[in-house]
Design a binder for these strands. Structure first.
Lengths: 345, 345
DNA sequence: CTGTTAGCGCCTTCAC
DNA sequence: GTGAAGGCGCTAACAG
């Protein structure tokens, strides 16, 4: 354990006062110092390997240079393939700005406002909330009080800051592709239960885009999964048993798609000859599944980076022109979709 | 933004001094207080929604109740399926103990001891280091100075605290299974470049277990990947082109295995009829791949939990009986392995 | 049982 | 240009 070196030690070694050390190290221009002094201080700090005590700094400055990454439902960490990329994007931006990231699952404390203690303890300056619940009153109130929050996903709050994808576009492209291939009876397996914003948004988009092409998506052609491949498998089994005439399935995400493919195969349907499957996210493994997955590409790393960037701007009181950022999506065509098979009679 | 409420406010409202507030809230038994007073303080704190300022507390207590999760190479977040589970395990234990987790990638600051600034800034009380490099001198010195570090993976430091798997067992079971099925020419695609501890350990284990069954693993039957399915695909292509007579491949992990399967198929070999493939990790999607992946099961969530638990014990100066924890592994037999095919002539 | 007193290490005036 | 002084919010001694 290194003996802790304080600004006092640095001051001593440089032969100046602690105030001077502070001024030099924080590049304050409150007073003009001689280059000579400045250099001496810097040298002394380097010699001693001085790093300011962050707690003391936080206390006096009132900020922590730390952002919280709030994972609404930590259990999804078990199966989710998206969050790590998001985290990568966040940490890249953080490093540029000298910020840190605290990862927290909800609820922190059962039966209490889950955000409050984090905010009140002043461990973080702001937060990025993943998969927020649109009906979360505590989150709403946080935003109302204009605590710095950036949403990954939206809760449709007029004041919210958020980073999302143009889901609609990607789905439109997927629908066009499928319909052009002759598919008319299309099912879907969302990646989380009904009622979640992200799920509902994607489902609504799918329904609208299908309608645009004159196709109906009855509720019976929707079977909800929960982000795991297993749930995708089970949901697809239910879906295809109920509607054997389905010729294409839009999976809620790529992990679900893994299960969808295996379920189709388990029912004796080969992909894509007998049934077409489209994923969502384009996780790095999607191109290497068997068959290679046709999917809607999104840039998760960038989403994380933009969210962190937005939050840090907020914290720095910079002018924000775009409160709701939308990142593009695109369809990546691979091997899991094909022309609709001739109907057996 | 809530007006910040300090212990002073609580004291005022409860009609006591700040010291009393502190004593009650920290359940200190230095002095005995009347239940009456105690209750008044608690009530006042609750009314006001008081949460102590963590910076102030850190400053005076000298600890942060925060552990750092150090990801040696953040880029693997892009493709890795293991870390989220680890994080889940860590955060579960953290919550039990009121700890927080700061996720950091290395290098924090290029061309400086990457751990030092984190340690010196006193933002964390201890750290969990992922995939440590065995030759990392900075990490070694940290351990030498007995800064609280728990390794996920080992660097073979006598003083280290670490949580690992009994890799050998799982690999032994896999080897037995393959050999019993008649496989004699077995290749492998490790999940990271040669020289990484985890890679070398698994490779050495594989080599020994094969030797036990009288089988040789020449270096030419090893092709290194980098944790992505893509790299697994490419490596397998190289491997099978060089050694078409290989009948079974041990993939370094399940993500690699995805690429291994697709590569085999791309070369016209069906799995498992023509070639058998074994994964490692048993990620949640492994059972739903096509074919369902036979793989060595490890409990990543538990690994994270045990690491966090160990670290917290260390921080609390509890007696540690087991410095190096080893978690069991087991072979999960599914569809990706079969008897060796009759040799074509 | 309670209040007073000192800091924790740092930053920011403000005189010098 | 520099040093002294005050305070961020909390806890831990110590007297009362």
């Amino acid at each position: 354990m290194a003996t802790k070196v304080t600004s006092h030690d640095v001051a001593l070694r440089a032969g100046v006062s602690r105030a001077t050390v502070s001024i030099v190290l924080n590049k304050s221009d409150a007073v003009s110092l001689s280059d000579e002094t400045r250099k001496r201080v810097l040298q002394a700090a380097a010699d001693l390997g001085y790093t300011p005590n962050s707690a003391a700094r936080m206390l006096v400055r009132g900020n922590t240079e730390t952002i919280g990454l709030i994972i609404s439902d930590p259990a999804i960490l078990r199966t989710d393939g998206f969050i790590p990329q998001l985290l990568l994007g966040i940490s890249e931006i953080n490093r540029e700005h000298g910020f840190h990231v605290l990862v927290e699952g909800l609820p922190l404390h059962p039966e209490k406002n889950p955000y409050e203690s984090l905010v009140e303890s002043r461990r973080i300056d702001g937060m990025i909330v993943l998969n927020p619940q649109s009906n979360d009153p505590d989150l709403k109130s946080l935003i109302d009080r204009s605590f710095p929050v950036v949403l990954v996903g939206s809760i449709r709050h007029p004041q919210e800051y958020s980073v999302n994808f143009t889901t609609r576009q990607g789905i439109a492209a997927a629908v066009d592709m499928l319909v052009d291939q002759g598919h008319r009876i299309i099912g879907t397996v969302p990646f989380s239960p009904k009622g979640q914003v992200a799920t509902d948004v994607r489902l609504a988009a799918l329904r609208k885009e299908l309608a645009r092409r004159g196709i109906d998506l009855p509720e019976s052609q929707v079977e909800y999964g929960n982000s795991s491949a297993e749930s995708g498998h089970m949901a697809t089994l239910r879906l295809l048993r109920r509607h054997p005439q389905i010729t294409a399935i839009m999976a809620g995400n790529d992990t679900i798609a893994i299960g969808t493919i295996s379920a189709a195969k388990a029912l004796g349907r080969s992909v894509p000859q007998d049934i077409s499957i489209v994923g969502f996210d384009d996780l790095p493994f999607a191109a290497w599944l068997s068959p290679a997955l046709t999917t809607v590409h999104v840039d998760a790393v960038k989403q994380g980076a933009r969210a962190a960037d937005l939050l840090i701007r907020l914290l720095r009181n910079e002018v924000i022109v775009e409160r709701q950022i939308r990142l593009p999506t695109s369809l990546v065509t691979r091997q899991s979709c094909a022309k609709v098979p001739p109907r057996p009679t």
